[in-house]
Nucleic acid binder design. Structure first.
Lengths: 214, 214
DNA sequence: CGATACATTGAACAAATTCAAAGCTGGTGG
DNA sequence: CCACCAGCTTTGAATTTGTTCAATGTATCG
């Protein structure tokens, strides 16, 4: 079985390169709630998430988690730490069973960074992460709780049907109480409607948009 | 005069490539307080800061600036927006006179992204920015005002001698009042000492460290 | 001097969290 | 079948953290 060939990051590599890659990497399985790495760990491997859902978070001064991002397969995870040779800036925890390709980074750098196609993919991955970080900053520093919830309502309406409010609150880094109060406020202003089956319907998207868009 | 050769990003390029690059780029001068780009602008050029100091910030819901980073020459600025083809995620304003190399990004991508050395430099630049972003998140979301100030005291003691408290407060995204109150608290606890010439001296670095380090 | 900018201090305020209590809901076992 | 329990959700009140506003203090520089 050759899993590496199926990874978009490496799909273009020559047979010989894939063989090299296999020699410096290993696939490991993880269970739900297992930690791939902790904030502060020294990176040794470059991690590529092959299967499962990985939650990235930081711990704040009160000891509560600050959700940063959820990784879905197939993604490079926290490659920044490898490139910059710094400790992992956040903790990565599986929210489901999963599988990770772990590549010895030192050896990878020596033999693969001359490959321009691979470089371009890494550039794209890094740029994508910068975008995510930029959005995290917007969400956490620029927007108020009300604006965050308005934005989430507009952009992820369907998630309100599948997730519990506690889970949504956790994605937004808010308490369930704040989410509940804000949704009630929106209901009272006829911005949204919550039917008997707890499905959310947006009644006045313009007002919601104006709460967070500039 | 050939400025491009002196830019570390392009120093390794062949004479012929430099000529190409010249054809798709232009050097522009800016005065203090001029804006290089606003948050939300569509990127057309890849910007390389050649001279001057550039301040990157976002505007929060109250309309106040949130300081993100200060660029010094020579740096790629906000290349993420080019790579991801998204609007600029923040505003860039000169805090001094400055100079920027503006490269037509479309044309750059077509002809230069196959160059592995250049790719590697771009990777390093992106990874560096991710690190900055990660630190911004730590500072703004994870740390309390007290912890931010303790960290700044330890890591940038000398800046307290040259900058005014209002400027430091602005770098920390705090009000001067909060900074003043916190410094007074630290003085009363004998963690720091401020002499007649307003020079700050750290008396108890362990306690300061314990306020923000984990 | 006196003007202007910067720093300090106190009091009121705002946003969101925390804590506590009460209300729902859906599944389970008697 | 329904009573009950566990886990959400909602609501109110208190608390926390930092900002805002206003007043006062201090310094420096022409």
């Amino acid at each position: 079985m050759n899993r590496i060939k199926e990874i978009p990051f490496f799909s273009h590599l020559a047979e010989e390169d894939i063989k090299k890659l296999k020699n410096i990497s290993v696939i490991k399985k993880y269970n739900q709630k297992e930690i791939l790495f902790y904030e502060g760990d020294e990176p040794k491997y470059l991690h590529i998430l092959l299967d499962g859902v990985l939650r990235l978070y930081k711990i704040n001064h009160k000891g509560t988690q600050i959700f940063l991002h959820q990784f879905l397969p197939v993604s490079l995870v926290a490659e920044l730490a490898n490139f910059e040779q710094i400790p992992y800036p956040a903790t990565a925890e599986f929210t489901s069973r999963g599988e990770v390709l772990k590549i010895d980074y030192q050896k990878l750098e020596e033999s693969f960074f001359k490959n321009p196609e691979l470089s371009l993919k890494i550039i794209k991955s890094l740029a994508g992460k910068l975008k995510i970080m930029s959005e995290v900053i917007t969400n956490e520093i620029v927007l108020t709780a009300e604006a965050k919830i308005a934005k989430f309502l507009v952009e992820n309406t369907e998630l309100f049907d599948t997730l519990k409010n506690t889970q949504i609150a956790s994605l937004l880094n808010l308490t369930p109480e704040t989410l509940s109060r804000t949704l009630t406020k929106f209901k009272n202003k006829d911005l949204i409607l919550i039917d008997e089956q707890n499905k959310v319907e947006i009644l006045n998207i313009d007002t919601l948009l104006s709460m967070y868009a500039n």
